[in-house]
């Protein structure tokens, strides 16, 4: 029976792959000729060129344009019509009595956004990694209906950030679901989205809720890649569960944790959509983050200032580049350490 199934699968595979083989034959001769002319390096360039072209058009070119915009001023929209102002926009962003006191800065809203983003990154990343880890550990156990629970945690990841923002706005607003429950339980309803600390906490909680499934999945994959015999050996040695976690699970999960940490960090710095829908940056400016500041300055206000918005986005991009380089450096060091072992 198994032989029959294998035979069918082989035949089906051959039918599906037949066009690929045919295409390979068609391109074989010209590619060989190209290789003879350009050598192996030339072939590498040939195969990388389409990707580099797309990267150039959609990443490098806009980046260069953005840098140029950041050195211009004026009300015109098109680069050619704008006035060159050099580093004035950066000067405006950095014009401060004290960077710790946004009120002393010319662009006070920029620095409010910077400090808010920093606080958000620290708290949200810590919470995201912790919750993702706990979720992955739980989902890795022999649970009843494990696939169902995995789907439940992953489902919010599939939702549009706008939907996430709206759902939670309806829950957290003054007459929302949460206050109804608080009221029914005999408590005093709280204006969750109007009180500064609660609103800030809500942005963290909602972003964790929306994305934790994705990061938990990465960690779950890491957990499942840990050889079972290590746990069996630890069990035979009578090692306590916490010690197993610290000595086996965590070290072997470190590469995945690092990926989660860096991805969470980058995403936290870029936070915008769900928070914009949920709080609009309020109350006051307590949940005004960098991306919203850039959006408002560059697009939302009627008198747009693309120069200032571009300068702020370049600074934010620089922070992200630094974070990515740190991640690459740590990843490389871990890799080398692994090889030495």
């Amino acid at each position: 029976m198994a032989d029959v199934r294998n035979g069918i699968a082989t035949r089906a595979g051959a039918i599906i792959l037949a066009p690929v083989g045919w295409l390979a034959n068609v391109f074989d001769a010209p590619l060989r000729m190209l290789q003879r002319r350009t050598g192996s390096n030339g072939m590498a360039v040939f195969f990388l060129a389409p990707n580099m072209l797309v990267f150039g058009i959609f990443v490098l070119f806009p980046l260069v344009i953005n840098i140029l915009y950041s050195m211009t001023g004026g009300g015109a929209l098109f680069l050619g019509d704008r006035t060159f102002v050099g580093a004035d926009q950066y000067g405006r962003l950095f014009s401060c009595g004290s960077y710790l006191d946004p009120k002393s800065c010319t662009e006070d809203l920029f620095w409010i956004a910077v400090w808010n983003t920093l606080a958000f990154v620290v708290l949200q990343v810590a919470m995201m990694v912790a919750v993702a880890l706990v979720t992955a550990l739980v989902l890795n156990r022999e649970l009843r209906a494990r696939s169902f629970w995995r789907a439940v945690f992953f489902f919010p990841v599939l939702l549009s950030p706008v939907v996430v923002g709206l759902i939670w706005r309806w829950i957290l607003q003054r007459q929302g679901l949460l206050n109804l429950m608080v009221f029914e339980a005999g408590g005093t309803p709280v204006n969750w989205l109007v009180e500064r600390n609660w609103a800030f906490a809500a942005t963290i909680m909602v972003s964790v809720w929306a994305h934790v499934g994705f990061y938990a999945l990465i960690l779950l994959a890491g957990l499942q890649a840990i050889p079972k015999d290590l746990y069996e050996a630890a069990e035979m040695d009578g090692t306590r569960p916490m010690r197993v976690f610290w000595r086996i699970t965590l070290p072997l999960l470190a590469p995945n944790l690092l990926v989660v940490l860096v991805l969470t960090l980058i995403r936290a710095v870029q936070i915008f959509d769900e928070v914009y829908v949920l709080t609009g940056g309020g109350p006051g400016t307590s949940t005004l983050f960098l991306t919203q500041y850039i959006y408002e300055v560059g697009f939302a206000s009627m008198l747009r200032n693309p120069g200032l918005a571009s300068a702020a986005s370049i600074l934010m991009g620089a922070v992200l580049v630094v974070l990515t380089l740190i991640q690459l450096s740590i990843a490389r060091r871990n890799e080398q350490r692994g090889k030495m072992r």
């Binding site: 940056g281 006051g284 005004l288």
Partner: peptide
């Protein structure tokens, strides 16, 4: 109503129509 003005930042527009419609 504090919510209309305080619950957003920048120039974000918020209307108070829903509170009026709901008799609040």
């Amino acid at each position: 109503n504090k919510e209309i003005w305080v619950s957003a930042s920048g120039t974000t527009y918020r209307a108070g129509a829903d509170d009026f419609i709901n008799g609040q």
